[in-house]
Simulated scan of single mutants.
Amino acid sequence: MERYQFELPLGSGVDRALTVIRYGHYGRPVVVFPSEAGRAWDFEANGMVDAVGSLVHDGRVKLYCVDSVDADTWSDRTLPIEERAVRHGTYSRWLTDILIPWIHDDTTAGAELVATGCSLGAYHAVQLALQRADLVPLAIGLSGNYDVTTWRSWGERGEATYFANPADYVPNLHGDHLDWLRSRLSILLVVGQGAWETSPTGALPSTLRTAQLLRDKGIRCELDLWGHDVSHDWVWWQRQLAHHLPRFC
Rank of each mutant, 00 (worst) to 15 (best):
L214W: 08
R93F: 04
L63S: 04
E159I: 03
S12T: 01
K62N: 07
I98R: 13
R77E: 09
A167Q: 07
P29V: 07
Y123G: 02
N46W: 13
T150W: 11
G218E: 05
F43A: 07
L79C: 03
G47C: 08
H57N: 05
L188C: 10
K62F: 01
W226P: 07
P137I: 08
V14C: 00
R60M: 09
P80Q: 13
L99K: 09
W74T: 05
W236P: 06
A133R: 10
G117T: 08
E197W: 05
F43H: 08
L79N: 05
N165Y: 13
R239Q: 13
T201P: 01
L188R: 06
T96R: 11
Q240I: 10
E222W: 10
V61W: 12
G117Y: 12
F33Y: 11
I219F: 04
Y26M: 05
Q238T: 10
A122C: 12
V148F: 03
H88Q: 14
E222G: 06
I103E: 10
A85V: 13
A203K: 06
T116Q: 09
L223R: 02
T78P: 00
P171I: 06
V148N: 00
G38K: 02
T19M: 12
W237C: 01
V56T: 07
V61L: 06
A160E: 15
A40C: 03
F248Q: 05
N145Y: 07
R157Y: 11
V14K: 03
L225H: 05
S153M: 11
A115H: 08
H243E: 12
G24V: 09
W180N: 00
T107V: 15
H174E: 14
P101Q: 11
W226E: 11
R220Q: 07
F43C: 07
W196G: 00
Q240H: 13
L185T: 04
S206T: 04
N165S: 13
R22F: 01
V191Y: 01
N165T: 15
V49G: 03
F43P: 00
L214H: 03
Q193S: 11
A195K: 15
S12Y: 07
H88Y: 15
D168F: 12
H243Q: 12
A51H: 09
E222K: 10
V114H: 07
L189K: 05
W226G: 00
F43K: 00
I98K: 11
S206H: 06
D176F: 06
L10F: 03
R60A: 12
R22D: 00
L181I: 04
R215A: 08
